[in-house]
């Protein structure tokens, strides 16, 4: 007596023509294996242990996938594995040709199991269909997640527009997942790594470097600079109608050190070049002798 295990994909069995298809497929199996006994189960029942498969029992295994076709990629599940006779070659039916596999037992034990989540079995939530990792049982290649072939993908992607008519929403024919689930079910997302920003130092602990050719002593006076900074910037009144310095005066002025002559020369350049304590911070760049008028650049209407 030949024992055949027939596995049925869960989505497939919900299709209207599923019954006819199963009868059809079973007759094919019977033709292949005269006098065989076929045990058919919906895949989820096996995964969820709703049915108990006898160990070391089946000579052949067939799987009808979501498209209602025989698929030679068998879902990876311990119950299924254990139910197969280990010493026999397994017929993974595909167009009548049999790819015989020896030492199935060993091969199967090398397979990695994907932890099957209870929730995955229900087709309700946002998880995509065929959640079970399918292992291609092939003597030569190591077991791994089998990629979809390109023609399947093309069928899926090619369907974005439906047919040529843009008017009717062909999209409505496709059932959508609940997108809020993607926020609630955020396990995958939390495992992903995310950019964290370095916040700028807002408490002014780090001082801007002294400008080139620093002569004001910033380099030496790092610590007391903060105090001078506050005092100096406050000493400039808010409304400055006119400021005019000739180059000699510029060279003489140095607010940071009492009585010291000679400036670093950066004060007249814009804010980009002024050091942190510069009393001219906030004013535009100017040339010696140039009148600085704040109103000159305003556009009050």
């Amino acid at each position: 007596m030949t024992n055949v295990l027939l596995l049925l994909n869960d989505t497939f069995v919900t299709l209207p023509n599923a019954e006819d298809c199963i009868i059809d497929k079973k007759s094919i199996i019977s033709n292949n294996h005269q006098g065989s006994k076929i045990d058919q189960y919906v895949l989820s029942n096996i995964i969820l242990n709703n049915v108990k498969l006898s160990n070391d029992y089946y000579d052949f295994i067939y799987f009808i996938d979501s498209n209602g076709e025989f698929n030679y990629t068998i879902p990876n599940n311990l119950n299924i594995k254990n139910s197969l006779k280990t010493s026999q070659s397994i017929n993974l039916n595909r167009n009548q040709s049999s790819s015989s596999i020896s030492k199935i037992g060993t091969k199967l034990s090398k397979l990695k199991f994907k932890k099957l989540n209870q929730k995955d079995k229900q087709q309700s939530s946002s998880n995509p269909t065929t959640p079970i990792s399918e292992i291609e049982i092939n003597p030569s290649s190591p077991p791994e997640l089998s990629p979809l072939d390109n023609s399947t993908k093309l069928k899926i992607f090619g369907n974005i527009n439906g047919s040529d008519n843009d008017n009717n929403d062909d999209d409505d024919d496709f059932e959508l997942i609940d997108e809020n689930e993607l926020i609630i079910d955020n396990k995958l997302l939390n495992e992903s790594s995310i950019i964290c920003l370095r916040e700028p130092n807002s408490n002014n602990k780090k001082r801007r470097k002294a400008c080139k050719d620093c002569t004001c002593g910033l380099a030496e006076l790092e610590s007391s600079f903060q105090i001078n900074n506050e005092q100096n910037s406050k000493s400039i009144p808010k409304s400055l109608p006119k400021i005019q310095f000739n180059s000699q005066e510029l060279n003489e002025i140095d607010f940071t050190i009492e009585g010291k002559t000679g400036g670093c020369g950066s004060c007249s350049l814009g804010d980009a070049f002024r050091c942190d304590g510069c009393p001219y911070l906030g004013l535009p760049a100017f040339k010696p002798g140039q009148v600085i008028s704040l109103d000159g650049i305003s556009d009050d209407l």
Partner: peptide
């Protein structure tokens, strides 16, 4: 939005974008 609507299709298999 059109792209996103496609991405939300329930039938998209979980190995669609493995490459």
């Amino acid at each position: 939005r059109k792209f996103w609507k496609f991405m939300l299709r329930k039938k998209l298999p979980n190995n669609l974008l493995t490459n």
